[in-house]
């Protein structure tokens, strides 16, 4: 096994990747889902869930990914891990294009990445005990030589996420939502990954539990130098946990910037309205706030509008917006980019 790891490491250095470069580089990523209809399942359209995304995730950072339901943020997260098969583009992980790996090599590379899910009820196999759930990753990658080693590692994982080691023999249904989410996190940690996609990890939890999980994720990140892609629809949570934030709208990243700048000076009108739509738990502030209320609904990824996809709801839209699609570096302030011809000042 040691030789395998060594080989994998060599593979990375052979591709010329150094830790100074982004850990994950997404280039021109497209994930389309065909819509089929009729007896012979003819393809009648494409849902462009992810439609041309460029994104860097830097070593050790938390990149927040926000957007409304159906914007493709979850599909993007899963495409990066190749849990759904992208239609086109590149996902370079430590310099190596994951989309070109064979299935065996891909399975081996999975050791370095993990995912945490939204629904702590659906993401654990109801027929496995906690020990089985956590041990599975160890089994797959042969990380525990003996039953004793496996048991110890399971205990260690439970300890890391703040659960009692007595829980190893229990089944998922015996736990509360927050505890289940901790089990899900422990499973993600089992393979000792460097990169974790957190797919709405707190939105299904009770309000009083959410902070526990956010803090746990932050502690673990510090302890194990993890890199997170943190997907959520709640911008206040994302702003809290992220170093940088990417905003998605109908399959596209429309703005990316450092978390603070995004809140202080949003450039894309969509980001601006998203920020203004989030209620702040402070009555005095909340009543004085100016709100941008968008008209209409999110455009359909099945048939996105021409040009800028946000123009149908945008309060700053001009004829030009319908003609050509603004690229992400239309506004380019170095670390802060936005895909808009008429950005907010």
């Amino acid at each position: 096994m040691a030789t395998k790891v060594a080989e994998a490491r060599e593979g990375h250095s052979a591709s010329g990747w150094t830790p100074a470069q982004p850990l994950v580089e997404v280039r021109g990523l497209r994930t389309w889902f065909p819509v089929r209809s009729g007896v012979i399942s003819r393809v009648v359209g494409q849902v462009r869930a992810v439609d041309g995304v460029d994104l860097d995730i830097r070593q050790g950072e938390t990149l927040g990914l926000v957007g409304e339901s159906g914007c493709g943020k979850s599909t993007l997260g899963r495409s990066i891990l190749r849990l759904v098969q992208p239609t086109a583009g590149e996902v370079r992980f430590k310099g190596q294009d994951l989309l070109r790996l064979g299935s065996r090599a891909m399975r081996r590379t999975r050791r370095e990445m993990a995912i945490i899910f939204q629904d702590p009820f659906a993401s654990l196999d109801p027929r496995q005990t906690v020990a089985d759930i956590l041990g599975e990753a160890l089994d797959i990658h042969h990380l525990a030589r003996t039953g004793r080693a496996r048991k110890e590692r399971v205990s260690e994982l439970l300890g890391l996420v703040g659960l009692s080691t007595d829980f190893a023999g229990r089944y998922p249904h015996e736990f509360s939502g927050g505890q289940r989410q901790r089990i899900g996190i422990a499973r993600a940690l089992a393979v000792d990954p460097s990169f974790i996609v957190c797919d709405e990890p707190i939105s299904a939890l009770d309000v009083s539990i959410q902070a526990q999980i956010i803090n746990l994720l932050e502690q673990l990140q510090e302890k194990f130098h993890l890199t997170y892609l943190f997907i959520a629809h709640d911008l206040s949570v994302v702003k809290h946990i992220s170093d940088r934030i990417a905003v998605m709208y109908v399959g596209k990243v429309v703005e990316v910037s450092a978390a603070k700048d995004l809140y202080r000076q949003p450039k894309h009108p969509y980001t601006g309205s998203l920020l203004s739509a989030i209620p702040i738990p402070d009555p005095r502030l909340e009543r004085r706030r100016e709100r941008i209320i968008l008209k209409g609904d999110v455009a359909s990824p099945l048939n996105p509008p021409s040009g800028c996809r946000f123009r149908t709801r945008c309060f700053k839209a001009q004829p030009r917006c319908a003609e050509t699609e603004p690229p992400l570096d239309t506004v380019n302030l170095g670390d802060h980019k936005a895909a808009c011809y008429y950005p907010l000042s």
């Binding site: 899963r78 891990l81 849990l83 891909m106 399975r107 081996r108 590379t109 999975r110 050791r111 990445m113 993990a114 995912i115 899910f117 939204q118 629904d119 659906a122 993401s123 654990l124 196999d125 496995q128 599975e136 990753a137 797959i140 990658h141 899900g184 499973r187 089992a190 393979v191």
Partner: peptide, 20 residues
């Protein structure tokens, strides 16, 4: 179900997924 996706994300082979 997400637990199936979760197992795939760990690098499980299809056979393991089916059997386990």
């Amino acid at each position: 179900m997400e637990f199936v996706v979760a197992t795939r994300s760990l690098g499980a082979t299809p056979l393991r997924l089916i059997l386990r």
